[in-house]
């Protein structure tokens, strides 16, 4: 069994070489499902360290992009050893960039952090119409709907999406968080969301608070 603390530390320090060599040594040892889940958990703890370092200003957006890529690569490598089993989920989240907006980097950062915090994330991609959020939230019985956008144009689309959740009777069943460069407290009230953030790590903490 690999040194889990070392893996968490390497992930937190974004030491790609150390993370990947630890993971490949581990995979070469024909690991059990239980041990693989422990490795996954160590990676997730590393991502929490990344979030804390972002909060403190040590890391910034580029580091979160890098961390997201590193985590994705790690999970892809570990996945075969899980043999279909997954770690316990803390909640279900439907996420997407709203209609008219084609940006997805911020959304993807948030997705990586949310997944590493244990959320089951249904990512609807970019330019997502309101009805797609509604349909997916209904289908998976989502706890949270996350709306992302960069362009100021996205403010109307965010509002339209929340309105659609309302008219479909879903609004009381889900929490809505909006995120991206354009969001402010004023926009949050206008849209009718429950929370807003320009900081992915903070956004995930808000979501964790909702599913406790």
């Amino acid at each position: 069994m690999a040194d889990l603390n070392l893996l968490t530390k390497a992930m937190g320090e974004l030491d790609e070489d150390q993370v990947m060599s630890t993971i490949s040594d581990f995979m070469a040892s024909n690991p059990s499902k239980e041990d693989t889940l422990k490795m996954m958990n160590a990676c997730q703890q590393g991502m929490a360290v990344v979030g804390d370092l972002f909060d403190s200003g040590e890391y910034f957006v580029g580091d979160l992009i890098y961390a997201g890529e590193l985590l994705t690569k790690t999970i892809e490598t570990i996945k075969p050893a899980l043999k279909g089993e997954s770690s316990a989920k803390v909640g279900k989240m439907v996420l997407g960039t709203v209609q008219g907006d084609l940006h997805d980097i911020g959304k993807n950062i948030f997705k990586s952090l949310a997944e590493s915090a244990g959320f089951e994330v249904y990512d609807l991609g970019i330019d997502t119409p309101p009805e797609d959020f509604v349909n997916k939230a209904k289908e998976v019985k989502a706890d949270i709907v996350g709306l992302s956008g960069i362009l100021t144009l996205a403010s109307e689309s965010m509002k339209n999406t929340v309105d659609s959740l309302n008219s479909d009777g879903l609004r009381d069943k889900v929490k809505v968080i909006i995120g991206g460069n354009l969001v402010t407290s004023d926009l949050c009230s206008f849209v009718g969301a429950d929370a807003f953030t320009t900081n992915a790590a903070e956004g995930v903490k808000i979501c964790q608070g909702w599913v406790k």
Partner: peptide
Amino acid sequence: GMKALSMDLRR
């Protein structure tokens, strides 16, 4: 681009 440059800054 934003993503690739972010990776390059580290790699």
